[in-house]
Simulated scan of single mutants.
Amino acid sequence: MNTIPDPKTTAYAPAERATLHELKNQNQLMKHDNILTQVADSVSSLVVILNKERQIVYGNKTFLGMLGTTASENLIGKRPGEAINCMHASQSEGGCGTTQFCSVCGAVNAILEAQQGTQSAKECRIITNENDALDLKVTATPYYLNEEQYIFFAIADISNEKRRQTLERVFFHDILNSAGGISGLSSIMPMISDMDEMTETAEIINRAANFLVDEIKSQRMLTVAESGDLVLSFTQIESLTILKELGELYSQHEVIRDKILSVDKNSVSGQAITDSVLLRRVLGNMVKNALEASLAGGKVTLFCSLMEETLRFTVHSDVYMPQEIQLQLFKRSFSTKGIGRGIGTYSMKLFGEKYLKGKVGFESTEENGTTFFIEIPQEHPEYKENK
């Protein structure tokens, strides 16, 4: 088979693509191979058939239905990530599979392994251009037709399973631990005779109860946001006040142990009309992650600067993130902390970009450590439209 000579460079899988003529012939061949297409159309899973360039030459009815169409013409020639609108598929001229992020993608790795002649099944986490999160299990199976290799690529949506694991972790681990701490401290209150000690214990119980309520609210907010039903409440915020409040809040948090949290003295005062609850939630997750990642004696610094019609908040720590972790941040189920964790950075992206209409990102180098940032417009577009 002749492929289009493709000068595009790739950071991972080959970028070359079949010609339009070849794609048309491959699609017709699939339609005439009744056994293969009948199998594809008889299952409830999402199924596409790929050529050796990882391009779709056939999509089953379930896959087309997921895309909201019955016509396959616009699908043929796309790669899987391009078809489902993966945010990384448009970041390189070579498309799906050719960025550095693709090196940790379960989908493209399953396809590449299947091209070596063996079936491969992997999990895949995808963030779309609309900031929707997909948790998928993919199975790639090699298939030969007219001496050409194709890949029978089946996709199962396991998002609900991943969400269940996260909720179980939150409610059966974090919240149970907090509730256990409150219960334990409450049980010794009657035995305390010293008033100062009693007051101190009562304050600890109150903080633990507040963190418990905040964790529950956070989960509820995330669930509502993912369903698209989150209603924004606009207020005017002042940047230095936000940073001061965050500093005070997390100076009392359990993750602060033996670490230093401060506000950069060069931070500037700026105002914005936005949803203050969501902004605090994004910045709070940044601060919490930075403190958790820092070693004893580590410093975490909060900063704010004013750019053209934009407020930029940053959270800096001295800790460097390995490249493999950097490539998977912001994906819903990815975490360095174990199964069922990893919604903190994902919620930053969801709240900060989809709802606050800002930009969320990070920079991490061995020399300078890690800085997370969020940039928000000084006047939220929806507020501007409705005022």
Score class of each variant (00 low, 15 high):
N2Q: 15
P5A: 01
K8E: 08
K8T: 05
T10K: 03
A11K: 01
A11S: 14
A13F: 03
A15H: 01
R17H: 01
L23F: 06
N27S: 09
L36A: 12
Q38M: 13
Q38C: 10
L46M: 05
V48T: 04
I49F: 05
I49Y: 01
N51R: 07
K52V: 06
R54Q: 13
Q55D: 13
Q55E: 15
I56Q: 09
K61D: 15
F63Q: 12
T70A: 12
T70P: 00
T70R: 09
A71I: 06
K78E: 15
R79Q: 12
G81P: 04
N85T: 03
C86I: 02
A89K: 02
E93H: 02
T98Y: 03
T99R: 01
T99P: 06
F101I: 01
F101D: 15
A107Y: 01
A107N: 14
A107R: 02
T118C: 10
S120E: 15
T128K: 05
T139G: 10
T141Y: 08
P142H: 02
N146Y: 14
E148K: 08
I151V: 11
I155D: 08
A156M: 05
A156K: 10
N160W: 09
R163Q: 11
R164T: 00
T166S: 09
L167Q: 12
E168L: 15
R169Y: 13
F172V: 06
F172M: 11
H173D: 12
L176P: 00
S178L: 14
A179C: 05
G184V: 11
S187W: 05
D194L: 00
M195S: 05
D196V: 07
T199A: 14
T201S: 13
I204Y: 11
I204Q: 15
N210R: 12
I216E: 08
L222E: 06
V224W: 03
G228D: 07
G228Q: 03
S233P: 00
S233Y: 07
S233A: 02
T235D: 10
I237G: 07
L240A: 02
L240R: 12
I242G: 02
K244A: 14
G247I: 04
L249I: 13
Q252Y: 04
Q252A: 12
Q252I: 04
H253N: 14
H253D: 15
E254K: 11
I256T: 05
V268P: 03
Q271M: 09
Q271S: 07
I273K: 04
T274P: 04
T274E: 03
R280I: 03
R281H: 12
V282D: 00
N285I: 03
M286Q: 13
V287K: 06
K288Q: 13
A290P: 08
L291C: 08
E292V: 12
G297E: 09
V300I: 10
V300A: 02
V300P: 02
E309T: 02
L311P: 01
R312A: 06
V315H: 02
V319S: 14
Y320H: 10
Y320N: 09
P322R: 13
P322Q: 15
Q323C: 03
Q323I: 07
E324T: 00
K337N: 08
K337M: 14
G338P: 10
G342V: 12
G344N: 07
S347Q: 10
K349W: 08
G352I: 06
K354C: 02
K357D: 14
G358I: 12
G358S: 08
T371K: 13
I376N: 06
E379V: 12
H380G: 11
P381W: 09
P381D: 15
K384R: 08
E385G: 00
K387H: 04
